[in-house]
Design a protein around this nucleic acid. Structure first.
Lengths: 129, 129
DNA sequence: GACTTGCTCTATCATATATAGAACAAATGT
DNA sequence: ACATTTGTTCTATATATGATAGAGCAAGTC
């Protein structure tokens, strides 16, 4: 797993970390049952604070993408991650919606945005930045 | 323009306001040259602070969706909003990317996400919540 | 000339982000 | 058995952001 953190981003670094782990799962680089580094080791590796890694882990745990086993370690959801519930789909749509609206204001056609989405899926699966 | 602000959202209310104005533009409800309420009047109408509306306006001005004419008023970009530049497209893609990745983790297929996008475009154009 | 306009300034309060260090108790590795 | 590692919890500090509040300014509008 290669993690790239932009210090000068408006996206908090705990979120950047969580998002890149999510991409790792999407890509299949991180599989069910795989263990993640300890908060201390990961923090040292990434040059950030232990509590920041911890926050990223809890963010992912709340989404049920990982399991945090106290005093033991952190693993990718061992039974596999279930398909999106209706609630999760709606939450995703609600988050994407303002971006689509902005695209429309910028005169992007529906087809252009569909193409953009398909390219993003490819990029993510290929681990392409 | 009907504006709905959720007080208990994690999205700042100045951003909610800006996003709903963007939807108004996308929908064609707000056309080039249309004037927006004064910061004071809008704030009173929405039950929020003048400075919060002002922040939303400056957010939109930075995107060049509106023009703020000091000591006069605020209008939708009178010459029309130009088509997205490459930079704007990349910025949009960068913001959508983590959401697509999350969709993939939740086992949504590319086609399901395309369908979701098409529905969002419809909803926005119809002003449907 | 009165009113409205966006802008600026100071101020306060709450929350979020990030770092730091210490201590705890249980699981793990040898 | 013992030392190490683990996530958790606590206090603490610093910075940034979000939101509100009120006052005053200078220029545009009616």
């Amino acid at each position: 797993m290669f993690i790239e953190i932009e210090a000068n981003s408006s996206v908090p670094i705990y979120l950047q970390l969580a998002q890149q782990l999510i991409e790792g799962i999407a890509r299949g680089d991180l599989k069910p049952g795989d263990s993640l580094p300890s908060v201390r080791a990961f923090a040292a590796d990434l040059g950030m604070n232990m509590h920041t890694v911890n926050k990223a882990y809890h963010y992912l745990e709340e989404k049920e993408f990982i399991q945090i086993v106290a005093k033991s370690g952190v693993i990718i959801q061992p039974n596999g991650i279930p398909k999106a519930s209706e609630k999760e789909k709606q939450q995703l749509a609600a988050q994407i919606r303002p971006l689509i609206a902005e695209g429309l204001v910028l005169k992007l056609s529906e087809e252009e945005m569909v193409a953009m989405l398909r390219e993003l899926v490819q990029d993510i699966k290929e681990g392409k930045l």
